[in-house]
């Protein structure tokens, strides 16, 4: 592994100060499940890393102003056991359950998964459809960026070098809403997504679709929303015909690539299948008004 220095701040202000002084040479390191792998593969050489695992400020899940707020250093494993996540972040929990392996989940963090900005990041589609925002802190203050703007390309985000992703927040899902996350991989355990998708739909009192959000992973340079497909669902009853159309429109939105895991064509077609299946299931899950 190439040489690097490692800073070990104990508090968030200390960490922000280090970042303020040393960015862009300083890279935050949380669970290490990407950064250490990149170093091993010699994909990136880091001059300086800063360990985040000791910053208590980045841990924990809480309710705040109708939102759920998740510390960025929350591990994927913690998503599976946290009662607030079970209640208000079911989609994220579904993604966590099929995220890599239990050994990796005990180290990998939600913040790390987002900052890494892999197109196949499994926490991204659920957070996109939950209308999440990320909170970026620096010595200058804190700013919020919507999930859909945060990732801009392969391994690229709007995080400035002196900023730290400190938390992720999303509005508590509405009562008449439902959704799901699903992925296709080349095996059933410990696997990278060839395609992933998340949907979230909300019905109005008459059972029509009030809002719909669809997010797709591993089919573009970043996890994306399928806005065109979402739009045609709004105001409609969630019936097979319109759901099929939403699947097709989603597939038209994506710009996948061929790689060792699958072809662009396969990915595009799987978008259609996953979106259709997730929407059908979600539509059934929302209990119509008596």
């Amino acid at each position: 592994m190439p040489e690097f220095d490692l800073l070990m701040p104990q508090t968030l202000p200390e960490a922000l100060e280090m970042l303020g002084d040393r960015a862009p040479d300083l890279t935050p390191l949380a669970g290490g499940t990407n950064v250490i792998v990149y170093m091993r593969e010699d994909r990136h050489r880091y001059k300086m890393l800063m360990d985040l695992t000791r910053l208590n400020e980045l841990h924990g899940v809480r309710r705040e102003d109708g939102h759920l707020v998740l510390g960025s250093a929350t591990t994927i494993a913690e998503l599976l056991t946290d009662p607030l996540i079970a209640e208000h972040g079911a989609l994220l929990r579904q993604a966590a359950a099929v995220f890599a392996s239990p050994l990796v989940r005990n180290r990998a963090t939600v913040g790390g998964n987002l900052v890494d900005a892999s197109p196949a990041a499994d926490t991204a589609p659920p957070l996109l459809v939950m209308n999440a925002e990320v909170e970026l802190a620096s010595q200058k203050g804190v700013r919020r960026v919507p999930m859909d703007e945060f990732m801009v390309g392969v391994n690229e985000t709007l995080r400035q070098p002196e900023e730290l992703l400190v938390s992720i927040r999303w509005p508590l899902p509405a009562t008449r809403s439902a959704g799901g996350f699903s992925k296709i991989g080349l095996r059933k355990g410990a696997v990278c997504s060839v395609v992933s998708a998340a949907v979230m739909v909300e019905k109005d009192e008459d059972g029509l679709c009030q809002s719909a959000r669809i997010a797709l992973g591993a089919v573009a340079t970043r996890p994306i929303r399928a806005y065109a497909a979402e739009e045609i669902l709004v105001g409609q009853p969630l019936k097979p015909q319109i759901i099929d159309l939403a699947g097709q429109l989603s597939a038209e939105t994506v710009k996948p690539i061929d790689d060792i895991r699958g072809s662009a064509d396969y990915r595009r077609r799987m978008v259609e299948v996953l979106v259709r299946r997730l929407l059908s299931r979600a539509a059934q899950e929302i209990v119509p008004r008596e």
Partner: peptide, 23 residues
């Protein structure tokens, strides 16, 4: 083991997949 022009495209156990306990 995917090989293109003599170059292995599945150089580690991240790409070269063998069955896990869930498969």
């Amino acid at each position: 083991v995917q090989v293109v022009e003599g170059v292995i495209q599945t150089p580690s156990l991240s790409e070269y997949l063998i069955p896990t306990s869930r498969d």
